[in-house]
Design a protein around this nucleic acid. Structure first.
Lengths: 338, 338
DNA sequence: CTGAAAGCGCTTACAG
DNA sequence: CTGAAAGCGCTTACAG
């Protein structure tokens, strides 16, 4: 079957291609094309199954109705949900999404951004890795609407939407302290990325605020090359060797799961008086134990605010938008059991 | 900052645009362009940060190096992993992916396919919903390379790669029977989709093969509109009211989780002599209980085979490929504890 | 060895 | 009311 072009439709209708274009783009009225002719053209287009070639439209008009989405890893449930939320959000504005994963690798991230950049998309939604500062700045320099998600570049004026790690971490600590725990452990990662670092900072500053001495031996940093099995073992060993702890703050989902698994593996008790706390999705933790408190990120809100910051860049207030950002509160979900 | 076109580079190098194009596309040798000139052009292109506009390339050459990926729901872990595996796979061939979710809605699926079709992508990877038969057939009629994943259309000659539900279901049943269980329950969904239906068929035929009478009261179909909470309760009630069961075959991940949650909620015992079996990812089940056997889909293999079937359509053997498909065996993982 | 020209399929001033 | 022409940024025969 041969693909039909606008010329074919024009020939079939006995008019010029431009007339077909006008009619199909709803500009018949403006150009005072007769209703009868417009109807005829629409009918022919429809019956012949004509489908405009968006590549040509894109080249001609300079807009693609396509956004580029760069995330860390689509197979990670957090990013998968975020991608979905973003897809749902942009679809309302008539946009689609091209995506790719950086796997937290600077080269992959930059290469991916370059590929998407070559496609001249209408906008970019990026969860950047460290080392993408320059290429993202270039993108913004070329005036492409751009928004960061889940992370940001402190040195640059690029709008972003993400969960408030400092606020969330503080909230968790305040909650634990209010419950009466004072020997609160921290399990975090030494992976050089913003989230665990900010959450650790919140841990420290909140303890300081309450004049609780900082105890290095209450902190365990899982080496970031650790495999799941190793992490489970290491965390369990830390917990076993630090019996004074009455609560633990896990800074990420992954660590929380590994910790719970490790506790189970080594046959350690999950006593009621160890509150396990972490960010992200909590369903998986509920499956494991009800004795858990969670700060859940509001993924829909991240998506909604990010797209909002992106869409506003098409308007007048671009200047103002570029300076703004959204820090979202996580939702603290108390543990189920007493 | 202004975007540079090939004309700009040509002007800067003092040559014609066509020469720049030739050099940048590695055809300098063929056209016997002098090495020194080629080097000079490359240098200018690089230093000026020239980036070819892929939209123009795509319009001119008719190829985009882009595949369209249509799945059910990117926030579903199975599809998220499949999407990642596909991304990893196509990247090796120099392709990228545009994606969208159907949410198992015929209209959404068809509309999504149409949008992607307008983009004249180089190929399409589709987990179709019922009702997409015609639009997918049209796509194939236009000679676009196309492969189905996770599902297929029995009436059509379109290649597909998916897990063997019948074989997998039979394997599970054989395993349970061999363990000595004979009162095996089935928990499935009445959602009118291929997977649970095929798995149920495997349950019935395997029982028949072993001359075990079919007992309708051992089968429970969860109404597909059920919310998570309702499903948990309904399944738990079924298990409670059918004490004769010594094993249960859950036909999907979702049902298995709901079942385990329900058992926990109602305080039912998870005795060793109930083997819980289901498809898909099993990490989440291990968290819950070690007393579980799982058939895990080989997501990487689905992706690899699907892309293989797709890439082959660019070659000579197109005819043969269109008639072929790959049915993958699930991996049976026995439960950990005795 | 290199350049001028045509054309991919559209849209949009411009002219009548 | 409607059409002819230019042009988006490339690539690729074609001509020299």
């Amino acid at each position: 079957m041969k693909k039909l072009s606008i010329k074919d439709i024009a020939r079939m209708a006995g008019v010029a291609p431009s007339t077909v274009s006008l009619v199909l783009n709803g500009k018949a009225k403006d150009r005072r094309i007769s209703d009868s002719l417009a109807e005829k053209i629409k009918k022919i287009a429809k019956e012949s199954g004509y489908n405009p070639n968006q590549v040509a439209v894109s080249l001609r008009t300079g807009t693609s109705k396509l956004f580029g989405l760069i995330i860390e890893d689509i197979s990670n449930l957090f990013f998968a949900r975020l991608a979905k939320a973003i897809e749902d959000e942009v679809i309302q504005y008539g946009y689609r999404v091209i995506f790719g994963s950086t796997e937290n690798d600077t080269n992959k991230g930059n290469e991916l951004l370059n590929v998407l950049f070559q496609r001249k998309l209408d906008g970019y939604i990026i969860a950047p890795t460290a080392g993408m500062e320059k290429s993202v700045a270039d993108l913004v320099g070329y005036n492409y609407p751009t928004v960061l998600i889940d992370r940001y570049f402190p040195q640059q004026q690029i709008p972003y939407a993400m969960t408030d790690n400092l606020g969330g971490g503080a909230e968790v600590l305040e909650y634990l302290l209010q419950k009466g725990y004072t020997n609160i452990g921290l399990v975090t990662s030494d992976f050089p990325v913003m989230h665990p670092q900010q959450r650790e900072a919140a841990y420290r500053s909140t303890l300081a605020l309450h004049n609780i001495p900082y105890r290095p031996e209450y902190i365990y940093k899982v080496p970031y090359q650790s495999l799941q099995d190793e992490a489970e073992f290491l965390i369990a060993a830390f917990i076993e060797n630090t019996p004074a702890l009455d609560a633990i703050f896990f800074t990420t989902n992954y660590l929380g799961i590994a910790g719970l698994q490790g506790i189970k593996r080594l046959g350690l008790r999950i006593p009621d008086d160890i509150a396990v706390i972490c960010f992200d999705d909590h369903d998986i933790f509920k499956l494991h134990t009800p004795a858990i408190t969670v700060v859940e990120q509001d993924i829909e809100a991240i998506a909604k605010n990010a797209i909002d910051l992106l869409m506003k860049q098409f308007g007048q207030e671009k200047e103002a938008v570029m300076q703004s950002h959204v820090l979202l509160k996580g939702r603290l979900i108390e543990r189920e059991s007493a």
